[in-house]
């Protein structure tokens, strides 16, 4: 039996956006959104990375698959039933990928997860120049700043960002995520203001358990 994530990745690789969308919607009828993100979309993208490692596909194929996945995510996001004002919380999150970073699919799912929990979200996309991120943060004053990076070359930039953000007067919670957080031990970054988020289920766990305390602690 072909696994669901492998099946989905075939749509991505074939550039079949209609098929991919249809299939994800079909899955959403039976599963919650968090399951789709954690257990199907993410494994599908990892599987595509594996295929490249097996020398079966090229980087160009990967780019195409990313674009299709991006499209599907945008579509799904637009269809989240709008959380009405009465239920919308006043927490704000700002999310972006560090300068030069090109990986952003995970971050986009994170943005969606925050929205689903009734947060206001500013998703600034990957490759955000440092000065720009600081300006936006001063203006928006988010409760949570989410920074994502995949490759180890981003570590120095990440360090500078964390250093800068830790001086913000309203003391937002800073989340560090992306593949970097899964692959490397980022314990040294962690403090009561900085949290390393390993994956989406880790984030959901935070939503379910620790959010209130963490917010109270830091704001």
């Amino acid at each position: 039996m072909v696994m669901q994530h492998e099946h989905l990745s075939q749509f991505f690789l074939a550039g079949d956006e209609e098929g991919a969308l249809y299939y994800t919607k079909h899955l959403l009828e039976k599963h919650p959104r968090a399951y789709l993100y954690e257990d199907i979309l993410t494994p599908a993208m990892y599987y595509i990375g594996e295929l490249w490692e097996r020398n079966e596909i090229s980087v160009a194929d990967e780019h195409l698959a990313t674009a299709i996945c991006d499209f599907v995510l945008s579509k799904l996001e637009a269809e989240i039933s709008n959380v009405s004002r009465k239920h919308q919380k006043n927490f704000k999150a700002m999310l972006f990928g560090v300068e030069e970073e090109q990986h952003y699919i995970g971050l986009k799912m994170v943005a969606d997860t925050f929205k689903e929990h009734g947060w206001r979200v500013r998703y600034l996309g990957p490759n955000l120049p440092m000065e720009h991120s600081l300006r936006q943060i001063e203006k928006y004053r988010p409760d949570v700043i989410g920074i994502s990076a995949a490759l180890s070359y981003r570590l120095p930039t990440m360090k500078i960002l964390l250093e800068r953000f830790s001086h913000l007067e309203w003391k937002p919670l800073i989340m560090v995520g992306g593949r970097m957080a899964t692959k490397f031990d980022l314990k040294e970054f962690e403090s009561n203001q900085v949290m390393v988020v390993k994956d989406l289920s880790h984030l959901n766990q935070w939503f379910n358990e620790g959010r209130d305390e963490t917010i109270n602690e830091t704001s």
Binding site: A60, H63, Q102, L124, G125, N127
Partner: peptide, 25 residues
């Protein structure tokens, strides 16, 4: 090294995507 064409297409796609993000924003 990969053809510069591939790089060019990748860059253009990135630009388009960030344009869309901006508009969305």
């Amino acid at each position: 090294m990969k053809d510069a064409q591939l790089l060019k297409v990748t860059k253009t796609m990135d630009q388009l995507r960030s344009r869309l993000d901006d508009t969305n924003f």
